[in-house]
Write a protein that binds this DNA or RNA. Sequence first.
DNA 1: AACGCGTGGAG
DNA 2: TCTCCAAGCGT
Length: 359
Amino acid sequence: MSVILLAWYDANAREMPWRTSPQARKDGVLPDPYTIWMSEIMLQQTTVVTVKDYFTRFINRWPTVRDLAAAQDADVMAEWAGLGYYARARNLLKCARAIVEEYDGVFPADHAALLTLPGIGPYTAAAVSSIAFDLPHAVLDGNVERVMARLYDIHTPLPAAKPELMEHAKALTPQQRSGDYAQAVMDLGATICTPKSPACGICPWRDPCAARAAGTMAELPKKTPKKPKPIRHGTVYLGRRTDGAWLLETRPEKGLLGGMLGWPGSDWVDSSLPHPDSTPPAKGDWEELEGEVRHTFTHFHLILRVITADLASETTPTQGEFVAKSDFSPSNLPTVMRKAFDLHYQGVSPQMTQRGPLL
DNA sequence: AACGCGTGGAG
DNA sequence: TCTCCAAGCGT
């Protein structure tokens, strides 16, 4: 089984900035564990296309784990802005510092050791130990869950089916070329055994696939239904001082958008409640903008009112701190906050708020 | 064990 | 517009 998939991978492996080709790996070349770890953290619940540019920027800016460990928290959070799941960035730094402090800057190969590190769970530990060190650990991500559920025609809904799917994933993982095998199953899931309309006709595992035989591939894996997302609403204040500085706050470490820069504002409350009370973060002539910001998080929809003011140079804010015009870039904001900024610039060149040079 | 935690693209 | 979902982890 694994031999068939590895042969398919030899001919069809996708190229990625962090990937070592199957040919190079056969020649004994393994990737730098730091780059594999970096890519795997970024790839958690995030598409390859989205990750590529972030990965390149991070590796260029912090080429080694020691460089990253020495970075300023705010610089890492700013570079992560827009990628989402910001706890990953906080744990990225914690993990880099633990590698330097506890492992002398050298990534451990051991699965159990990796598991103890911040931000590294069962999947990522298996991915790093197999891809970076060629150790025979089975990866079980969304792709592999889908491939296993179909290969063995398993109708138990996720997440209850995970242990059973993991047993199959382990049984299939070969002792040789474990890293290529891990990447191969995931490539198969991403390009052929896709969630909708899988390309069974060109699948290297078409013959042994039980779901293909039963005709159930399109309905697998089964999933337990999700709860509907409630709507919340709130207010943000965009205060600009006469010298161009913006009034921003660093959000608390824990919770939504933890550790990220954002606009001061009200709490975000359920739409069944009256509009939340809020006081502007500084004295000024505040005026509500037309339109609103709409944004959907993992578990709720958000509608924001945006209120702006020009603030006097001597203003002392009650919330947040002024960020100098030269230090501010909307690309350093999480997307929902950048949308509020975009609303302010409505009608101006949309390019203005994309990642790039400072305004 | 179930929930909190982002975002953008596809259909 | 709306739902799904993408190389999951922490609590």
